[in-house]
Structures are given as C-alpha cells and as structure tokens.
C-alpha cells in the first residue's frame, strides 16, 4: 500500500490557531485532504506538521442573500451540487462542480480546496521513486522543466474546475491571515506559474467565496464545458467557462471567457472588445473561439495530444458560446456529470 509519511497532525478549533501553526517551518494546511494526501503519499509535497481546517466552525455552508451567494470554504463539493437554488441561479457553476473527480471524492473535497488545488503535470504527480528516475523536475527538487526543457519556468497546468467558472462569474474570495482579512476577485487569486500559482500568502487562509448577485437580473447566461477522457474521475485536459451578460435588447453588456487546464492559471480570453455592444451571433462566436485557441498553451503534460487539445479550445469555446446563444451545439463531449444525485 502507498502510505503517508509520518507527520504531526493538528486539528484546532480556532482559525487563529490554524494561522499561527502555519507560521512554523514545514507546515501544510489540509481541508478535505483529496489533494494533499495523494501528494504527500507520492512525496512531492512534504510536511512535518499538517494542520487541518476541518474542526474550525463556521467555514461551511451556503448562504443565499441579496448580495449573492456566500459559500464557506469548507463546504463540500457534494453539498454545492445538491443546492437547488445554486443550480437554478448558476447552472454552469453547479455543472463545473458536479464534473470534479468522482462522487465519493466530491463528498470529501471542499470548494476552497478545489480553488487552491495544486497545479498538475505528469512529470510531477508521480511517486518519489518515479521522480528519482527522471532526476526530479523544476517544480520539485529538480532543475529542468521536462515539459519544455529550455524554459526557465514550470509549466504545470491549472487543475481546478471551479476556478475558471468562478473567474467568469466575477466571484470573490475572502482571505484571512495574520494581518487581517482581504477580499479579492477569484481571477486575482492565480498567477501564471506552475510552482508559485497562487497569489495567496502561505499563512493566509481562503475562508469564503462570494458569487455576486444581480447576474440573473442582468440576463447573465453562463456555460461550462469540460474535455477529458472519461465521464468521471479525470481532471479536465481543457475546460471552457463563459458568461455573457445582455441587456433587454439582447445586446452584450459584459462577457467573460476563461480556459482551464491549458495554462498554469485560468486563461482569460479577451472577449469584451469583440462582443460588448453587439448581439451574440455565429460570426462573433467564431472569432472568440479562434482567440481561445490562440490563448491556450496546452503542453504535453497531461492526457491527450497537446496540439489537438489546442484545437479543441476552439471547438469547446464555440460550443460553450453556442450554448449561451441558444444556437445548436455540435460537439460530442464524453457523457459525464450531468446527472445530479
């Protein structure tokens, strides 16, 4: 059996205590554990002490208010998927969360954890023994990024399905650290670097998520499309999250498109310059899709041929915007995650 290395484990009930513990050497934070424990079992993430957030009260639950919906960072993905009001208001968000990994994992994993999930790479998400045989990589202990050996940076890809859709929906996160709390847009949480992929400080804790209200009044329609080999379990090799706000005349007032898994952070596509002030139509969608293909940097570090994934950024963006525009959708994605249980 693959097992965890020995650790000290703490599960304090006060957030301050968790934050204080994080100040020590070689400490890692855990919530649902579905990202950290596999990484520690493979030993590409190590710690002397692991401090859990799970005993801290008040960090879970979904609260629908007039400002929008507040989701506690420890809310399980399963609880989000089962929230009827959420599904009615932000179906694309529910769809994204419902597509994460598998049902038993979703009942353990937290939304905060999914936003902060480590970047992934098939040269990195391997056991200690395997990584020894390639002399490690830039992301951990090594000197070379095997994905792009001449590159000075790490190309591990963003692996969160909730991140692109929350970026697209203008969501915000609350971070609490030793110096107090701050609220930042989800899109500002990420940095385009495979190693240092979060703008959160190591002793800051993501405690809450807010999806601002008003979306439905402003006729926001959103879509989430995910490409992967199988209908469950797999991480996205490409995801497309799109949101389009229109006025009463069906003119676009605001639009966002983010790609997941084809960069070290969610990749923002510049669509406003194309779409705002016009009604969404087939020709504009085509242009957005071409921009998406250009912006995607799929690398040979996950499943499927990288070049084809780049091409799929076009098709999937096209499909997502067609869905929003109510136009026919032709792509045949693998059957997945659309049934809620």
């Amino acid at each position: 059996m693959l097992r965890l290395p020995p650790i000290d484990y703490r599960s304090p009930q006060r957030l301050e205590e968790v934050i204080a513990t994080l100040a020590s050497e070689n400490v890692r934070l855990v919530a649902g554990g579905t990202d950290l424990w596999p990484n520690m079992k493979r030993r590409h993430q190590l710690a002397d002490t692991v401090v859990s957030l799970m005993s801290v009260p008040g960090l879970r639950g979904i609260e629908h208010g007039k400002d929008g919906v507040k989701i506690g960072a420890l809310t399980s993905l399963a609880d989000i998927v089962r929230d009827d009001k959420m599904r009615a208001l932000w179906p694309a968000f529910t769809r994204a969360v419902a597509s994460i990994s598998s049902p038993p994992l979703r009942s353990m994993a937290t939304i905060g954890g999914n936003l902060c999930v480590d970047t992934r790479c098939t040269y990195y998400n391997q056991t200690e023994e395997w990584r020894r045989s390639i002399d490690y990589c830039l992301k951990e202990k090594g000197t070379i990024c095997w994905v792009a050996t001449k590159s000075p940076r790490c190309w591990a890809h963003s692996a969160s399905d909730s991140a692109p859709i929350l970026c697209a929906l203008d969501a915000q996160v609350k971070l609490i650290g030793p110096d107090g709390e701050r609220v930042i847009p989800v899109s500002a949480l990420f940095r385009d670097d495979g190693i240092d992929y979060l703008c959160k400080k190591s002793d800051e804790i993501l405690t809450e998520l807010l999806i601002p209200a008003g979306s439905d009044q402003d006729h926001c329609r959103s879509a989430f499309w995910k490409l992967r080999r199988r209908g469950s379990i797999d991480f996205a090799v490409l995801s497309v999250a799109a949101a389009v706000w229109t006025d009463t005349k069906n003119t676009v007032t605001r639009a966002t498109v983010y790609l997941g898994a084809v960069g070290s952070s969610p990749v923002s596509i510049d669509v406003e310059s194309l779409l705002v002030g016009q009604p969404l139509n087939e020709d504009l969608i085509k242009q957005v899709a071409q921009r998406a293909q250009k912006a995607a940097t799929p690398m040979d570090n996950t499943d499927f041929a990288a070049a084809w994934r780049g091409k799929m950024a076009n098709n999937y963006t096209h499909a997502a915007l067609n869905e929003i525009a109510g136009l026919p959708v032709r792509c045949a994605p693998p059957k997945h995650g659309l049934t809620v249980v």
Binding site: T122, Q126, W130, I144, T149, I233, D303, P334
Partner: peptide, 22 residues
C-alpha cells in the same frame, strides 16, 4: 539530457480505463 525511459502514467488516474459512463 537523460537516458531515462519511464512509464508515462503508472496510475489508475492517468492510465485510462473506461468507467460507468463509458
């Protein structure tokens, strides 16, 4: 850079075997 020849994905996650939806 290296003589290495390694299994690309020795895991149940990355070696793709069909699931219930497939």
């Amino acid at each position: 850079l290296s003589p290495s020849l390694v299994h690309k994905m020795p895991s149940l996650l990355e070696y793709k075997s069909p699931g219930f939806h497939d």
